[in-house]
Amino acid sequence: MTYNGDTIEAEIVKMLTGRIPAGVQVTGETRIVDGLGLDSVAVLDFIMDLEDHFDISIPLDRIAQVQTVTELSGAIGTLVSARG
C-alpha cells in the first residue's frame, strides 16, 4: 500500500478511535502529548501500534521532535518512503 501525508494522517485518526477518551476530537493540529488525553507512556504505546501498522521503527529522538498529529504523520511518511 502506498501512503501520502493525508492518508497517513487519516490512518492515525482511525487508529486512535477507541483508544482515546470519548469526546476528544482529533485534527492535524491536535498535540499528541497533551491533546489526546493519554499519558506519555500510553502515547509511546500507541506509536508502537503505528510502527507495526506502517512496518517502521520511529526512533525516540524523532518522536520527541514531533508535537502534532500532522508532524507525526510527516515523520511516518519520511520513514515509510525511506523503507522503499
Binding site: L44, M48, S57, P59, L60, D61
Partner: peptide, 13 residues
C-alpha cells in the same frame, strides 16, 4: 542513558 548517548533509540514491545 539513551538520551545521553548518540545512537538512534528504538523501543521494542
Amino acid at each position: 542513558a539513551s538520551r545521553l548517548g548518540a545512537a538512534e533509540v528504538i523501543r521494542f514491545r
